[in-house]
Design a protein around this nucleic acid. Sequence first.
RNA 1: GGAGCCGUAGUUCAGUUUGGUUAGAACGCCUGACUGUCACUCAGGAGGUCGCGAGUUCGAGUCUCGUCGGUUCCGCCA
Length: 598
Amino acid sequence: MLYNKRTNTCGELNTRNIGETVVLNGWVAKKRDLGGIIFIDVRDRYGITQIKVSPDRKDISSLAASLGNEFVISAKGKVIQRESPNKNIPTGEIEIEVEELQVLNESLTTPFVVEEDVKANEDLRLQYRYLDLRRKKMMDGLLLRNKVYQMVHGFYAKHDFVEVETPILMKSTPEGARDYLVPSRVHKGKFYALPQSPQTYKQILMVSGLDRYVQICKCFRDEDLRADRQPEFTQIDVEMSFVTQDDVFKISEELFKNIWKEVLDFNLPEQFPRMTYDYAMTKYGIDKPDLRIKDLMIITEITDAVKTSDFKVFKDVINSGGIIAGIKTGKSQDGSKIEITRKISDGYTDFAKKLGFGGLATLKVNEDGSLQSSILKFLNEESIKGLSAAFDAQPGDFILILSGDKSKVLNGLGQLRLKIAEDFKLLDDSKHEFVWITDFPLFHYEEEENRFVGEHHVFTSPKDEFIHLLDSKDRKEIESIRANCYDLVYNGNELGSGSIRIHDSETQKKVFRIIGLTDEEAAEKFGFILEAFKYGAPPHGGVAFGFDRMIAMLSGTKSIRDIIAFPKTVSAASLMDNCPSPVIKLQLDELGIQLKQG
RNA sequence: GGAGCCGUAGUUCAGUUUGGUUAGAACGCCUGACUGUCACUCAGGAGGUCGCGAGUUCGAGUCUCGUCGGUUCCGCCA
């Protein structure tokens, strides 16, 4: 097809180009046909430029009048000053006086109107993703993603990291998330797994002496989805030899500082604050505390303060080994008071009940410093004093108390804290609060399966002072083991996770034993890495950052679907190309697979 | 696996509480008019399996049960 090829994009012409003859290629975003004169907004990735067809150009006018939205056109003409400029767009000072007009392709009427303030529901937009991506906001998401992608590559290249492509078809590892499986045709009855992460490969690359590895790679997990979780997602995967936790933190902080400066023009601190897992759980009730409200509603345990009271609810909890703890609202950082009315308070009680608590005790601190609450009548003088002191109760404060099993209470208060923060709009999006959470437990006991499982992954090393406990048989002792393991948390979201790894096969075997793998099973499943560790594995460690989540946060969207070109729905389906889909019998036969009925 | 919300014109929604005449609006689409618009304006028009399937009823968009899809959260996500 012969047509006038563009000399310029639709986003770059301005008053300096007046008088030039140019050609634009693009999509019809909007046509305004005034009867004689016709205006058309032409759109491409770079912007929108208005072209004008004068009524005296009869031949062009009829063609222009017949254009529909999303037609692809080529327009040639002179750049002229607009009689009435549009200040809302960069090209709004000028327009093109059309001399030649060609239709390069027509378009059906689109199922939804392609406009910035799109009205269509997400499922329709997903089905016609290519139309949705024509919107500036969506295109900007992809462009931002590309920008950061390039930055990450450049950053690690500058620091002597080597990018290595690890296999997409790998051995299934039964620990952790469900694997996506790929049947083997050659080895009938055997399966590959898609990587949940290239964890084993990157560690083996350290054994190879690669020293510094990075890969921006796809990972796959067959688990239920959320707004911030997709079945396939991208992570920045990093591994380094001869490093400590501090080395990993340092280079990671530099990466994030660069990105936040470049994209948001925000200066992150030289070093990110650190907080142990235990502190985070005890004070914030969650392992990813949102430090935009750092000093607000920190959890206070008052078990001791009220232990002399006769209140049956508290007594029962104490006797069964539980705790009593609470948070107080206090004043918000901008000084505005958090006014908790009876109605709001009842709402929080319902919230607590939904979390499985019998109720929520609330106390109001009067202007004279006295307490007001329905539970006061159950408490003795000593308890009331102790409680008041523990919370440093000030006039206007509102205190919310939960009691029960320790982890449940902390978790409940953590959730209440976030709910109150959200209800009173205390989470300021202009804040950028990074924090490293360190010293995670190495194991936790899975009651249902009746065994220990790795809190992080099974290659995470215990901190030196806990190594002797790997030989323990005592549940409490094993649960007390802390790991060289860390998460990077940003505004209450987990952005990354990593650890210093085990690099000797003896320690690795002990860890396998604790999670219930016999030496034989460990050899069957992870023998290759145990074997590799026998041949001079260097001390090493690394981290992986969620690339999609990072881009979502940089662009201010909650859903990572918005910044993934072709995302899947919460049921892991793609509405555009209709996958997953059935396959023909021949394909199954070749794989030796027979489907179960029903 | 569990819970909540949503599903009505091409699109976004109203109508469902309290079952009852011909299911409405806006945008989009089509036809006509219009020479400075940028949410063009004006006049007219077409367009509906009320997600699907049972049930209750003289009568169901509306009530009940089931089912499918979307979405949010919990479980899950080493």
